[in-house]
């Protein structure tokens, strides 16, 4: 990584702070509506399903399915200049398929649509951990729960 062009880091806001705290301790959290049970992410206070304001954080399994992926060749930001080509995936989480997260890819081969994946919690620096993804069948046993 270039010192001159630091990578963008998540700047947690008042809604997202607990999500990023979860990632730091290796937990992929989403909100769960206390009234209708609908899950939601990114975090916000009202349920889009039943409009209740009462909810709690729920830790997911951190498992999901690859929906789509791209391979970046162009340097869109100087902070990723040394990383191209790099792959970014969109993953639907197992608990609710309309919750879709974008993340880095750390599988050995290319992703495929429908591939079963698991979250890899990658420490970025003192404050920040990011969520990348790898195929379930590539996960070493030591990382299995």
């Amino acid at each position: 990584m270039s010192e001159e062009f630091p990578k963008p880091v998540p700047v947690p806001d008042r809604d997202s702070q607990p999500f990023w705290e979860g990632v730091r301790v290796g937990e992929l959290r989403v909100q769960s509506c206390d009234d209708c049970g609908l899950l939601r992410w990114p975090p916000r206070d009202i349920c889009g399903g039943c409009h209740a304001f009462s909810w709690h954080w729920r830790a997911t399994t951190g498992r999901g399915t690859v929906l789509s992926w791209v391979v970046n060749h162009q340097v869109f930001s100087p902070s990723f200049a040394t990383e191209v080509p790099y792959t970014v995936v969109t993953v639907a989480i197992n608990e609710q398929s309309d919750i879709q997260m974008v993340g880095g890819w750390c599988g050995a081969g290319a992703p495929r649509a429908g591939m079963a994946v698991r979250a890899v919690y990658t420490r970025f620096d003192e404050e920040t951990t990011l969520v990348n993804w790898e195929p379930v069948d590539e996960a070493p046993d030591s990382r299995d729960e």
Partner: peptide, 28 residues
């Protein structure tokens, strides 16, 4: 945008990337 904090850290930060993601799904 609200997505920025969840996407930019992974180097996913410009329109071509977002459209490419959808285009791939359409191909699949």
């Amino acid at each position: 945008a609200v997505e920025t904090q969840y996407q930019a850290p992974y180097g996913h930060l410009a329109p071509p990337q977002q459209f490419a993601m959808a285009a791939r799904t359409h191909m699949e």
